[in-house]
Simulated assay, not measured.
Amino acid sequence: MPSRVSRAVLGATLAMSCLFAAVQSAHAVLGGSPMTPPAGASTSSRIVTPVAVMHAASAGASSSTAASSSSYTVHETTFGNGTVVREYLAQNGSVFGIAWHGSQMPHLADLLGTYFPQYVAGVQAMRAAHPGHGPVAVEQSGLVVHSGGHMGAFAGQAWLPQALPEGVSGSDIQ
């Protein structure tokens, strides 16, 4: 039989998911394809080559080979409400990291895709060990999610440690 705390955490998590479902949905999937921006959103993209890889290239490896094998693309979408979602895409086009900030929380079930149940379980375990409110930090071998903020100012990052390109760390997901 679930404890009162577990039921409360699960209830709060589900309530937040429903509440955030009303917020513009992002439809990006961590580990999958990038989102299709909704109508009214502005977008931009840039290609990034990690500094560590550029240093390795200048130390002897062919710079074009090193840069092309580990560079990644950052897609940034700004929703009509001002919330910004950045998707970090590997060379194969899959999303290995997502970051967000803005006045409204994006719909995490859409952003995390098949990793959302793992995230919910991580939040439940965290809240059971440390009851209360505050930022969320789920740090597992296959998924890392940091999320926090307050009404009008939310921010967070999520990434797949096993999918980070060479020279990229979780701190690069911003």
Rank of each mutant, 00 (worst) to 15 (best):
Q104R: 14
W100Y: 15
T77Y: 09
T83G: 03
Y72Q: 05
Y72L: 07
H101A: 13
T73C: 04
G97V: 01
N92D: 15
S71R: 13
T83L: 03
P106N: 07
T83K: 02
Y72C: 06
H75E: 14
M105P: 00
S69F: 02
G93F: 10
N81T: 03
I98E: 01
G93S: 10
M105D: 09
E76W: 05
H75F: 12
L89F: 08
S94H: 13
E76N: 08
Q91F: 04
A90F: 03
S71A: 14
R86L: 12
G82V: 03
S71I: 07
S103N: 12
E87V: 05
G93W: 08
Q91S: 15
S71E: 12
G102D: 09
S94A: 14
S103E: 13
G80P: 08
G80A: 15
G102M: 09
Y72H: 11
G102R: 07
A90I: 03
G93R: 11
R86P: 00
F79V: 02
H75I: 10
H101I: 04
T73H: 01
V85G: 00
V84R: 14
Q104A: 13
F96G: 04
E87N: 03
F79G: 02
S94L: 11
S94D: 13
A99S: 15
S94K: 14
V74T: 11
G97P: 02
H75Y: 13
S94E: 12
T77F: 06
L89W: 08
S70E: 04
G97N: 06
